[in-house]
Amino acid sequence: MAAVLDTKSQYTCVLSIVYGNRYDAGFVRLIMLSRDIHRNHKMPTASKPGRRGRPTGRAVLTPQDWFNAATDAILEGGFDQLRVLPLAKRLKVTRGSFYWHFEDLPQFIRQFLDQWQAQRMKGLRYWQPGLDPQLSPEQEVERVLLLMFEGPAVEFKRMKVEFAIRDFAQRDLYARDIVAAVDEARVEQTARLLEPLVADGSARGMAMIQYATVLGSVLLFRGQLGGERALQTIRQQWQALLQKPKVVTEHADTGAKAR
């Protein structure tokens, strides 16, 4: 019974038949090494494709990156600057990155407005009545007026974006509802703040006057030469107006006691 030859012997037999004696042991080892390399080599397998259109490298952006780019565009030219291609060029990516996050431009604008509303609502926590229990109603109004006229909420860039949104709301129903919700929340909270200082039933009306005064003053004077001084003067005059009824009452009470 023929013995089973090992691999090296098999190669030696084959080489003897083909080449006769014109080979050496080194040649056999070379042939075997080539075989082992070929056997152990793993062919590359195709990686599983990710989601179609998934951007890579610099194009891997978040929705917030696009919202920030939109804010910059609005500051430069209003809502008319919100177009997919210009925003993509601003971020140095292709439009595919935009459509990875958003279905279309209208959806993007709605989400941008939703975020603006959420941020404005969050900012109202600084206007809350009773935030500092140690302050009197007059002191609390003074604190809030300082924020409304001169605080970070009315910083020039923020207000420029807000006025652009208000302009857009004149021709877009979704934006109009967003602005209306923010206005209502601001007026309602201001009314609760003013209620201890004004006549019964007049808190909401006074709150609307105060709110309109703040927006109008910021629109007219913010960023203008001497504007900060003008805003300070308006704030002080409005604060004095709110305190005036109490002063009159105190004088009346003093006169009554003297008589």
Rank of each mutant, 00 (worst) to 15 (best):
A153N: 11
A153D: 09
A153C: 06
V154Q: 04
E155D: 14
E155N: 10
F156D: 12
F156H: 10
F156P: 02
R158H: 09
R158V: 03
M159C: 09
K160G: 02
E162T: 10
F163P: 00
A164F: 02
A164T: 02
I165Q: 00
D167P: 01
F168H: 12
Q170Y: 04
Q170I: 02
R171K: 12
D172K: 07
D172R: 02
L173W: 10
L173F: 13
Y174Q: 05
A175S: 08
A175P: 00
R176E: 14
R176V: 01
R176F: 10
D177Y: 08
D177R: 12
V179L: 03
V179K: 00
A181R: 13
V182Y: 00
D183K: 09
D183N: 12
D183Y: 06
A185L: 03
A185S: 07
E188H: 09
E188K: 11
E188R: 09
Q189C: 03
A191Y: 02
A191F: 04
R192W: 08
L193Y: 01
L194D: 05
P196V: 08
L197G: 02
L197M: 11
A199I: 06
A199F: 11
A199L: 11
G201E: 07
A203C: 11
A203H: 08
R204G: 01
R204K: 15
R204L: 10
M206A: 15
M206E: 09
M208L: 15
M208Q: 15
Q210C: 09
Y211A: 12
A212F: 06
A212H: 10
A212E: 12
T213H: 04
T213M: 11
L215S: 05
V218G: 00
V218I: 15
V218D: 06
L219Y: 09
L219I: 06
F221R: 02
F221G: 00
R222M: 06
R222H: 09
L225C: 05
G226M: 06
G226F: 05
G227N: 08
G227M: 07
E228R: 14
R229Q: 14
R229K: 14
R229G: 12
A230F: 04
L231V: 07
L231A: 04
L231R: 04
Q232D: 12
I234F: 06
Q237M: 14
Q237K: 13
